[in-house]
Design a protein around this nucleic acid. Sequence first.
DNA 1: AATTATTTGTTAAAATAATAACAATTCCGC
DNA 2: GCGGAATTGTTATTATTTTAACAAATAATT
Lengths: 216, 216
Amino acid sequence: MDDKKVSMAVVKRLPRYYRYLTDLLKLEVNRISSKELSEKMGITASQIRQDLNCFGGFGQQGYGYNVEILQREIGKILGMQNKFKAIIIGAGNMGNAIANYSLFAERGYSIVAIFDNNTEKVGKIINNLAVLDMNELENYIKNNRVDIAILTVPFQYTSQIAERVASLGIKGIWNFSPMDLRLSHEVKIENVHLSDSLMVLGYRMNKKIEEDKASL
Amino acid sequence: MDDKKVSMAVVKRLPRYYRYLTDLLKLEVNRISSKELSEKMGITASQIRQDLNCFGGFGQQGYGYNVEILQREIGKILGMQNKFKAIIIGAGNMGNAIANYSLFAERGYSIVAIFDNNTEKVGKIINNLAVLDMNELENYIKNNRVDIAILTVPFQYTSQIAERVASLGIKGIWNFSPMDLRLSHEVKIENVHLSDSLMVLGYRMNKKIEEDKASL
DNA sequence: AATTATTTGTTAAAATAATAACAATTCCGC
DNA sequence: GCGGAATTGTTATTATTTTAACAAATAATT
Ligand SMILES: NC(=O)c1ccc[n+]([C@@H]2O[C@H](COP(=O)([O-])OP(=O)(O)OC[C@H]3O[C@@H](n4cnc5c(N)ncnc54)[C@H](O)[C@@H]3O)[C@@H](O)[C@H]2O)c1
Ligand SMILES: NC(=O)c1ccc[n+]([C@@H]2O[C@H](COP(=O)([O-])OP(=O)(O)OC[C@H]3O[C@@H](n4cnc5c(N)ncnc54)[C@H](O)[C@@H]3O)[C@@H](O)[C@H]2O)c1
């Protein structure tokens, strides 16, 4: 317990920093100050310095930050060196989309297997992986390293399958069903709420509509 | 300007309230107190009462909240009565997944058209909609009500297409490319950052790994 | 080499957000 | 209809998060 607790507010900004730094690297920018970065990102320089200092002093006074070093360090903080292995459960619409998406691999998350319980989907090839039957799940996890289960199954099966993978020793679950999946186990869970995101857009659009109406 | 400004923190919790209330309705629960709801949702009763009171007094002292009324009111706050019409641009993996997903329609967001610039995809039927060519975009929007553009095109085309739909009068953009889309126009934008979400999971898993290592 | 410009890390202040407290009100059993 | 239990709306308090300020350190300039 050497470093002070880092708040979720800070953690959620880390991938964003990583994204901007990766873009800068591609543009062959060597150094950047918190001020420049703040202008690009639309946040305050103060916040950037405060955030980065939760993890150590990566910058140099009078100079700024070395983009390559900072990007690598944030990558480490995010645990990218773990090269996490993930399986997808549910080879439907969303499962297919994720399996075919290459950026996750670039970020160090490789999809190593896909499972489904529908016999019509089992054996189908998705991005070079043959869909496996759900009854091979236990066996597969026993014989292969799997860190993350990506759950893209229908709502009503999600909890049950989550329990199943948790009991098999999976350490992380990325859940796409519109529910707040919670488990007693010490599994880390991230719930993706696409509908929620769309509804927030709807709220903001509606607010504008009401404001426009009021100002007539 | 009758009501005080509602913070984003509150707004982002509204779809979640809507979700729990809809579930309760399905279970035919008529009334619920902030205390009961807080236990279900894992937040404090105080926060629930505080949140709801940003929009008015929906409850009754000594009784609690009527589930049906509260759900309907939150729906109104979220602008669901607008019955927003959305088009999808980019009939690829993610565009297909969204087009085939029925919950958005249930929530009042209907997909009315799908566009792509790949001639091999144009004409293909996705969930009863024929994919339209991008050069029909202007014409379609001129002749049909379209509120939202769902952008599921590759990264490098996203900004340009966003500008294009904004200039055509679209009021909201739901962007799936891993970038912080920002426009000068007064268009409301929600950026979905799936990679960011996965990386936060990675951070939390990695932290646990480090903690376990340290406690040896 | 001295001087001025930057720019960080860090502490202090301000702003926001979450939680607790409680008076006012309503329900509900008797 | 009465009295205790329950529960809201709202105000007060506490905690968290963001922003500002600035000394210390470095870089660039002359
Ligand atoms: N498609 C979207 O745009 C979208 C958006 C938001 C949320 N979601 C959520 O993601 C999840 C998946 O959605 P989808 O659109 O991909 O659904 P889908 O029906 O296309 O795919 C679900 C897949 O899971 C498989 N499956 C069903 N039961 C299973 C089981 N017990 N074990 C293993 N596999 C099983 C099915 O055979 C199917 O292939 C759902 O919970 C949905 O609510 C999807
Ligand atoms: N698939 C995923 O799981 C996933 C996850 C996160 C983010 N994203 C993002 O979502 C976006 C789409 O991803 P995808 O996996 O669906 O990609 P995809 O390649 O499967 O689909 C992109 C579609 O856009 C079409 N297109 C290309 N240029 C166009 C243009 N100028 N006008 C109209 N249509 C055009 C293509 O023909 C294709 O059908 C990308 O920005 C990607 O980074 C995808």
